[in-house]
Structures are given as structure tokens and as C-alpha cells.
């Protein structure tokens, strides 16, 4: 039997104990002495960071996702500052608009963008394949969450860079609570995105998450405060993740206050959608 010479990593792997050997070599006529030594997994943190980085780059390379994540929110922000839609609400147009735009960014990335990419990854068996590597299912989800946070950070920086010259003056006391609430909102929308992506066909995920982005964006209390919405919408938006996130961010960045009721609604959505996704997410 010829030994393999073309396979350096197997033969040359330092085995420490000179290969445990194969006691059964005699019983199995065709088996060569064991030289296969599987490599161990990379450390957990490294696997998650790698996956997060890979997913972030994939998201940023996707033109449609960039339009949804960056171009649309910026257009909405400019639209809200040049029209009188937000006049008479106690502060400047830009000060009222920006918190809602940040909330919209979270919905774009965590819900629509991440949901669609996860849905198609599921269709193409990417989730199944990656779950057989050391990354595993938990690492895969952790990597996705990391990518959402990385893209969200980029969105916050871009929106801030455009909004400051337009006259945005957030309440300093509200900055930290605002960012924490933004992360909580991203968590709620990530859970919802995974729930949709993991339970219906990717084409349906595409339709549902895009449609909800438009509906919630226009009427969900996210960029347009509840008081400017039709009476019917006013009654429900406080219970929607969009309305709760928009309102909580406006309270933080405008007044430096934490809206406990809205935070509670967001926590509830995160818990319910996260639990449902854990329970019903189909990997194939």
C-alpha cells in the first residue's frame, strides 16, 4: 500500500505521542496506520468574531441592503427636515427626526436585512453546513448578532455625521441610555427577523420583512411620533416594537429620560420573539 505523500498536514502533524496507532489494523485489511489527527476547534470567541466579521462584510457588500440600511434612512431624515411634518412638537425638526431615524436604522439592519439574509442562508443550506463546523448553531447566531451591531454602529456614525451639521443637538444625559435602548431595539428586531426567516420560505421572508419595514416605517410610530398618526394607529403603536423604540429614543435624545413603559414593551418583544424563534426556527 502506498502512503500518501501529498497530504502534508496529516503526515506532518506533530502528534506528540507518535500517533496512538491503530490496534485494529490487522483486522481491517485495507486500513493504513492511523495518521489522521483531526484538528481542534479554534477558541469560541475567535469563531464568533470571525463569523461576525464575515457576516458584516457580506452585509456591507450587498447593494440592496446598503440602500435599505443607509440610503433610505438618510433620505427619510432629509425629507423630515425639509417638510413641516414634525413642526409644533416642541423641538426642532432635526432633533425630533434623528432618534426615529436611528430606530429605523435598527429595523433595517436587524429585521429586514438580517432576516432576508438568514432566510436565504437557510434555503441554500448554509446554516446547516456551518452548524456542522466548530462554529455550531450558537456561534452562528452570535455571529449574526455581532454583524447587526457592527452595521448598526456604522449607521449611527453616518447618521450622526450627517445630522450634526444639520443642527442635531441631542440631550447629553440621554446619549448613553439612548444607545442602550437602540441596542435593545436591535435585539427585539433581530429576534423577530430570525423568527420570520426561520419559519417561512425565503421569498415570503423577503416580502414580509420589506412590507413591514414600509408599514412600520410610515405608520408604526418609528419616525413619525404617535401624535401625528391617525387616531386608529395611535392606539396601537405604543405596543409595537417600532413605536416603542421610536418613542423611547425620542425621550432619551430629546429629554434625557428613560421611557420605562416603552423599554418594557421592547423587552417583552425580545423575550417573546426570541423564545418563539428558539422554539420554531427550522434549520433546513
Amino acid at each position: 500500500m502506498t502512503r500518501v505523500s501529498g497530504r502534508a498536514p496529516l503526515g506532518n502533524t506533530p502528534l506528540g505521542s507518535a500517533a496512538p496507532g491503530n490496534p485494529a489494523a490487522g483486522g481491517a485489511p485495507r486500513s493504513a496506520p492511523r495518521s489522521t489527527q483531526g484538528s481542534g476547534p479554534a477558541p469560541l470567541l475567535r469563531r464568533i468574531l470571525l463569523q461576525g466579521q464575515y457576516e458584516t462584510v457580506t452585509m456591507l457588500r450587498n447593494g440592496e441592503q446598503l440602500i435599505l440600511a443607509i440610503v433610505m434612512p438618510l433620505l427619510a431624515m432629509i425629507g423630515l427636515t425639509v417638510t413641516p411634518l414634525l413642526d409644533g412638537l416642541g423641538s426642532s425638526r432635526i432633533n425630533i427626526a434623528v432618534p426615529g431615524i436611528l430606530a429605523l436604522c435598527a429595523m433595517s439592519t436587524a429585521f429586514t436585512g438580517q432576516g432576508i439574509s438568514t432566510g436565504f442562508d437557510r434555503r441554500y443550506g448554509v446554516l446547516r453546513f456551518l452548524s456542522t463546523t466548530p462554529l455550531g448553531r450558537t456561534g452562528l447566531i452570535a455571529g449574526k448578532i455581532l454583524a447587526v451591531l457592527a452595521v448598526l454602529l456604522l449607521q449611527v456614525l453616518i447618521v450622526t455625521a450627517v445630522a450634526l451639521p444639520l443642527g442635531w443637538r441631542p440631550e447629553p444625559a440621554g446619549l448613553l441610555p439612548g444607545l442602550a435602548i437602540l441596542v435593545l431595539g436591535a435585539a427585539a428586531f433581530t429576534a423577530l427577523g430570525l423568527l420570520v426567516a426561520g419559519t417561512v420560505r425565503p421569498e415570503a421572508t423577503l416580502a414580509i420583512t420589506n412590507l413591514l419595514w414600509i408599514l412600520l416605517g410610515a405608520l408604526g410610530g418609528i419616525v413619525i411620533p404617535a401624535e401625528r398618526l391617525p387616531a386608529l394607529a395611535q392606539a396601537v403603536v405604543h405596543f409595537l416594537p417600532s413605536g416603542a423604540l421610536g418613542q423611547a429614543l425620542r425621550d432619551a435624545f430629546l429629554h434625557g429620560s428613560v421611557n420605562a413603559a416603552a423599554v418594557f414593551v421592547l423587552l417583552l418583544w425580545t423575550a417573546i420573539a426570541g423564545g418563539a424563534a428558539t422554539r420554531w426556527f427550522k434549520w433546513n
Binding site: 441554500y124 448554509v126 446547516r128 453546513f129
Partner: peptide, 26 residues
């Protein structure tokens, strides 16, 4: 896997390098 399980938008070498990163001694 029978259906491959590789992301359609990926290019072969970066994809393989990414997966290799999940192992200590690939």
C-alpha cells in the same frame, strides 16, 4: 452536504479561509 451549503455570493478562496479559521490546525 448534498446541496453544498455554501453561500451563493461568496467567492471560493475567502470562503475557505473563513471556514479554516474555525479550526486550530486547518
Amino acid at each position: 452536504l448534498q446541496d453544498g451549503g455554501l453561500p451563493p455570493s461568496a467567492r471560493p478562496i475567502p470562503l475557505l479561509r473563513h471556514i479554516a479559521g474555525m479550526y486550530q490546525d486547518p
